[in-house]
Simulated assay, not measured.
Amino acid sequence: MSEQHLEPITIRPAVRADAAVLGSYGASLMALHNKWDPARFIPAGSTTPEKYASWLASQIGRDDVIVLVGEDRDTIIGYVYATLEGPDYMALRGPAGVIHDLFVDPQRRREGDGRRLLEQAVTMLAGKGAPQVVLSTAYKNNGAQALFERIGFRATMIEMTKDCERPDLAQSASD
């Protein structure tokens, strides 16, 4: 941990005023995944931060949604987005908490902030009745996978992708 970040972050529920920062982080998350595998993950476009911000803002305050931010001296340094979901027959699972996004500013990684955000989300999902918590992680995201394993997650699925010749799909998804 660097000297300037000795105090633990404050974790709090997101508010609509946080949306612009969260949208920027969401776009960064998309760009990172696209960098790892551009054939699988859609690229972030010029309007992605605003669209992501609007969408996350629409989720804030829902009973079945958790959006938390990590804050250090009034600066948001990361967020987690999770949902409480019923059975999902396509995913072959029963009711669960689902972690959809976990992002920490690259300048603040490896300081425990992502772990704190994730643990708080898991605790809240369990408190809302989730019998288990699931998440997906990019195949090349070894750092995140190691974090998830340290917290107690175990590998249960491997997504596999076969690319078809459809160049029109990637562009339309990011617009």
Score class of each variant (00 low, 15 high):
Asp72Trp: 07
Gly78Asn: 02
Leu84Ser: 00
Leu32Tyr: 15
Met30Ala: 13
Tyr81Glu: 02
Pro87Ala: 12
Gly70His: 03
Lys35Asn: 11
Pro49Leu: 01
Ile76Asp: 02
Gly78His: 02
Ala91Thr: 14
Leu32Pro: 05
Thr47Arg: 13
Tyr89Phe: 15
Thr48Met: 03
Leu92Asn: 10
Leu92Tyr: 12
Leu22Ile: 08
Lys51Trp: 13
Gly70Asn: 03
Ser24Trp: 08
Trp55Thr: 06
Ala39Leu: 13
Arg93Phe: 05
Ala57Thr: 11
Gly78Tyr: 05
Asp72Asn: 13
Thr75Gln: 11
Val65Ser: 04
Ala17His: 12
Leu68His: 11
Gly61Lys: 02
Lys51Tyr: 12
Leu84His: 00
Ala19Ile: 08
Asp63Ala: 07
Val65Ile: 10
Ala14Tyr: 11
Asn34Tyr: 09
Ser24Leu: 10
Asp74Ala: 08
Gln59Asn: 10
Met90Lys: 12
Ser28Trp: 06
Ala39Gln: 15
Pro43Ala: 13
Gly86Met: 05
Val65Cys: 04
Leu56Met: 14
Tyr52Asn: 12
Ile60Thr: 09
Trp55Glu: 08
Gly26Val: 02
Val67Pro: 04
Val69Thr: 10
Leu29Asp: 00
Tyr52Asp: 09
Glu71Gly: 04
Ala53Ser: 08
Leu68Asn: 10
Pro87Leu: 05
Ile42His: 15
Tyr52Arg: 11
Leu84Thr: 00
Arg62Met: 04
Asp74Val: 02
Leu32Arg: 12
Asp88Thr: 06
Arg62Thr: 07
Lys35Trp: 15
Ala31His: 07
Tyr81Pro: 00
Ser46Thr: 12
Asn34Gly: 03
Thr47Trp: 12
Pro43Leu: 08
Glu85Ala: 11
Tyr52Trp: 14
Ile42Ser: 15
Leu56Phe: 13
Glu85Gln: 13
Ile76Trp: 01
Asp72Ser: 10
Val21Pro: 01
Leu84Val: 00
Tyr79Pro: 08
Leu22Cys: 05
Ala20Gly: 03
Trp36Pro: 09
Ser28Phe: 01
His33Leu: 01
Ser24Asn: 15
Ala27Met: 05
Pro87Gln: 07
Ile42Pro: 14
Ala82Tyr: 06
Gly94His: 06
Phe41Glu: 10
Leu32Thr: 14
Tyr52Gly: 04
Asn34Cys: 06
Thr83His: 05
Glu50Val: 15
Ile66Phe: 00
Thr47Met: 14
Gly45Ala: 07
Gly86Gln: 07
Ala57Val: 09
Leu32Lys: 10
His33Lys: 06
Gly26Leu: 04
Thr48Trp: 04
Leu56Glu: 10
Ala44Met: 10
Gly94Glu: 11
Thr83Glu: 14
Lys35Cys: 13
Pro43Ser: 14
Val69Glu: 00
Leu84Asn: 00
Val69Phe: 01
Asp63Lys: 07
Pro43Cys: 11
Thr48Arg: 03
Val69His: 00
Gly23Tyr: 02
Ser58Thr: 07
Gly26Cys: 08
Ala31Phe: 08
Asp18Leu: 00
Thr83Gln: 11
Ala19Gly: 07
Trp36Asp: 15
Val15Ile: 13
Ser46Tyr: 12
Ser28Asn: 12
Val69Cys: 05
Arg40Phe: 12
